[in-house]
Design a protein around this nucleic acid. Structure first.
Lengths: 374, 374
DNA sequence: CTGAAAGCGCTTACAG
DNA sequence: CTGAAAGCGCTTACAG
């Protein structure tokens, strides 16, 4: 094991050049502009590269090009009881997307507030990253203004919910309003006429978006919404349960309850169960995020799945886009129908379009087979 | 927005030197060997650094020192229905630990098998990372041998479960056997005499460790284990449910069922519920990982929490340890008692030591207050 | 199409 | 304790 202290010196471009009997410049060209080389020369260099298993040194390349080949992503502290498992799969998607262009994701943490922003600034000052992919976007997120002002590249997963109307920076987001409207349509077709909504008074713009989808769809169907909206104070199962209790205590309780997150939905199911009622049979319940929780509970939770791979790919496209235009991209989500609100049948055929305005993905309606088997 | 295309040139060490009216060398010393400078000189340089908000260029530094200041971590693809939310919090802990020494985590993905190993090799060849932190360790994990052979630094979260007895590389792990033994002790004190175990036939050594803890503790108490062990074929709730059904179908079914993961435990709870029995009252159920799932279900799931922060810190200590000795560190876990198996009272006082052999953490028994309030 | 030269921004022996 | 010099391993205009 003493061997470990001897660091092998890595193969350099110079050694490749010597082996291939060409200049270093030519090796660099073989790597970065192969079209400039004669086929024979290119083959010779490529052969040497393969034999030596040569890989260009990242730091040296970055120092020359001025690009780190890395983007920063801030990992949020997991709040207890909360589940950002969506982030888990987003991170995988983001990493995959970066690798497809030879880049990687650098992780960091940042405290909330101004000092947190300095972490972003330091990373840029060190040229450790080329820019940032933001998530957990809040309404009037300070990061957007701060980064834009300093001319730091970023792309935001989550709309830039600015009150001013101006959009500082590019974003990609999922059409939560459309997804929730589709859920309302499905529940309405199932016969539900009182549909409640459990939201959150947090600063996340996504909540507002989802609630708006619920409200507008209800109004479109002529359903009342007054008194059927309850806000939670924090993102926990207990809060979701408390909110649902408030709804179920009404003289005319809702027969269906939609929740802004899966975590809340779990609380709703718990509240329903505690009253001796059965989720999915006596009271329909839906969530949002399609976290592992959704397929784990009994009955399975009908939820909304976000297209993480496309979100990640779009974010990177925006981040590295040559033009600095602030573009916004809205992607459709997919409804995953399970036993807690089986809207599969009610939304067959033409109604599938309701899932998203510009249906680019396989964002249609799908049933979790795994679940229905059980 | 056209402004964005103009990249601000970052402040360099040279500019700091000019402003402070010293040589560049002196600025570098102020950064890396401040003790060599006279207090007055140091103050002068520090002032210039602050005024200019100077941060050393990472690529340049890496190129000089030969250290990337980055370690690689492979993000696993989330399997549907499974939950590696433990990994979520581990990633946060790992990032935090790296930042405390001015380093960061680089994320990457790798396909299973040999081609996946090449991803590790390429990252090192590029000198993009100094080494790796491994997780999801399997028995005879090929990565350990492969990396050791190539003299690539790594630290493994998860023991190196080698059949040969030799330990290729340093590791840090959680004493799952001790934690499961403690659960058995608690259940035994509660009066349970038939305790089943739902495991997994996967290649994860952690499963074997947990099962062993269960088995040895049962034998110590004179409880039978024959026929009370069922293996799942995949890490899903449905499999956990199927396994539990097998146990509950026995002539003398277990009155308590321990599961190797929270996901399995959820399946166990589902199986219990489907038979009209109540988890925590008719049949005690425990899980492992203390994922968000554990506090989300009803009743709350008694589970085992791994000390992620200390795991991360230890992994980095081993990774950057000057000596290349292969050290192994076993950390104790904490039992989180909830309603599915309320062993809080039975394990009061002296028995707390059972949680882990060398109790360094606050790894004692704790009750999830959040949960018990509900 | 190919090659010698300068430079990216640091750090680290080596003289003074 | 401080300073001029070389070098880390690339890339990118610039001549040939």
């Amino acid at each position: 094991m003493t061997q470990r202290s001897i660091r092998h010196r890595a193969v350099t471009l110079r050694q490749v050049a010597e082996r291939a009997a060409v200049s270093r410049q030519t090796v660099s060209n073989a790597l970065n502009a192969p079209h400039r080389l004669e086929p024979a020369t290119l083959a010779k260099v490529t052969k040497a590269i393969d034999e030596l298993r040569y890989r260009p040194n990242r730091s040296a390349r970055s120092l020359s090009t001025g690009s780190a080949g890395l983007i920063g992503y801030c990992v949020a502290q997991r709040r207890d009881g909360a589940s950002n498992s969506m982030m888990d799969s987003f991170l995988h998607a983001l990493s995959t997307a970066m690798e497809s262009v030879g880049r990687h994701v650098l992780l960091f943490t940042a405290p909330p507030g101004e000092s947190g922003l300095n972490v972003y600034g330091d990373l840029i000052a060190q040229q450790a990253v080329d820019g940032f992919v933001l998530s957990d976007t809040e309404r009037d997120d300070p990061r957007h203004r701060w980064l834009t002002k300093r001319d730091i590249r970023f792309a935001s997963f989550g709309r830039v919910w600015s009150r001013t109307g101006r959009e500082p920076g590019p974003w990609v987001d999922v059409d939560g309003a459309a997804a929730c409207a589709t859920l309302v349509d499905g529940l309405h077709a199932l016969g539900h006429r009182r549909i409640g909504f459990v939201g959150w008074n947090g600063k996340l713009g996504a909540e507002e978006d989802r609630r708006r989808g619920w409200q507008q769809a209800c109004e479109r169907h002529g359903l009342r919404v007054g008194g059927l909206y309850v806000r939670c104070t924090e993102d926990t199962v207990a809060e979701g349960e408390r909110a649902a209790q408030g709804l179920l205590d009404r003289a005319k309780p809702p027969t269906a309850i939609m929740a802004a997150t899966d975590v809340f939905a779990l609380g709703v199911m718990r509240a329903v169960t505690k009253r001796g009622a059965r989720p999915g049979e006596d009271v329909a319940v839906t969530g949002f995020d399609d976290s592992p929780l959704a397929s784990a509970v009994t009955p399975g939770l009908t939820s909304v799945r976000q297209p993480v791979a496309e979100i990640a790919a779009t974010a990177l496209r925006l981040l590295y886009a040559p033009s600095g235009d602030s573009e916004g991209v809205l992607l459709p989500a997919a409804i995953i129908s399970r036993a807690s609100a089986d809207i599969t049948t009610t939304l067959a055929g033409d109604d599938r379009r309701l899932v998203g305005a510009d249906l680019r993905l396989d964002a249609g309606l799908s049933t979790d087979r795994q679940e229905s088997k059980t």
